[in-house]
């Protein structure tokens, strides 16, 4: 059976890995290629790079980062952040990425999901959803969590799958950075409505949070950033924990 995946996420700015809390207050945590290699040695199943500048220069720098990583790291790489056109998607795939993650651009231009899926295949297209509880439902926010869209996150997840998304990266803005566990309610609601893989994001703070999200929701993968960057937990420890809990992982 397919193993549950553990995915470290690297927020990249100016060719360096940075990390903030609740989307603000950035700290430099190191060279992306070095960090990627360390994660591979620890047993990471996949890596996610997010270009948090989302500017033209940022995208150029990101392509170089992906290219350098793909020289030495042999696992699936997902790249996201500010990709607005098929040409930009093609450029990161050519640089060595296996998948692209679309967030704001997918909300603003749904056709980009279908166009990308038609050309590169659904398996290349990850739609990232940042959601927050507003008036009793989960609302989709874009532009790094700054702009509410009025969209319901669960409806948007279903629509994204229909448009050609091959995977969803679901981040709860309520739990992100708080380290009190993944947003089980949000993830469970989305997993019940779609039949493409779902990556859980936002809120991991200790080993038990990983087993909890796999036991209580249909999530296929769990993503974390600062937890791994600062060495609070090693990917290998998470895998050992999951294995002991009876969850299928690659060890």
């Amino acid at each position: 059976m397919v193993a549950k995946r553990i995915i470290p996420c690297l927020d990249v700015k100016g060719g360096r890995v940075v990390k903030g809390v609740n989307f603000v207050g950035l700290k430099d945590v190191g060279d992306p290629v070095e960090i990627a290699k360390q994660y591979e040695l620890q047993g990471a199943d996949e890596l996610c790079f997010l270009d948090i500048t989302a500017s033209h220069e940022g995208r150029e720098t990101m392509r170089e980062v992906v290219e350098r990583c793909a020289d030495v790291v042999f696992m699936p790489l997902t790249v996201g952040g500010g990709l607005k056109s098929v040409a930009e998607i093609k450029a990161v795939l050519r640089a060595g990425a296996d998948k692209v993650s679309l967030n704001s651009s997918a909300v603003k231009n749904e056709d980009l999901i279908s166009a990308g899926a038609d050309i590169f295949g659904k398996q290349c297209m990850v739609v990232a959803i940042d959601a927050k509880r507003v008036d009793g439902h989960f609302e989709v926010f874009i532009n790094g969590g700054r702009i509410p869209t009025g969209l319901d996150a669960i409806e948007w997840a279903v629509r994204a799958q229909k448009l050609g998304a091959g995977e969803l990266l679901v981040t709860s803005m309520d739990t992100d950075g708080v380290k009190n566990g993944y947003d089980i309610e949000l993830l469970d609601a989305i997993c019940r409505e779609v039949n493409i893989p779902v990556i859980a994001s936002g809120g991991a703070g200790k080993l038990e949070h990983f087993s909890e999200v796999f036991k209580k929701t249909g999530a296929d993968a769990a993503l974390a950033a600062s937890l791994f960057h600062y060495g609070e937990l090693k990917v290998r420890d998470v895998k050992e924990h999951l294995y002991k809990e009876g969850i299928s992982v690659r060890r």
Binding site: A3, R5, Q123, E167, N195, I196, P197, A221
Partner: peptide, 10 residues
């Protein structure tokens, strides 16, 4: 099961 078969398998 989900199609494509995507991910790490033994």
């Amino acid at each position: 099961l989900k199609i494509p078969h995507m991910g790490w398998n033994s």
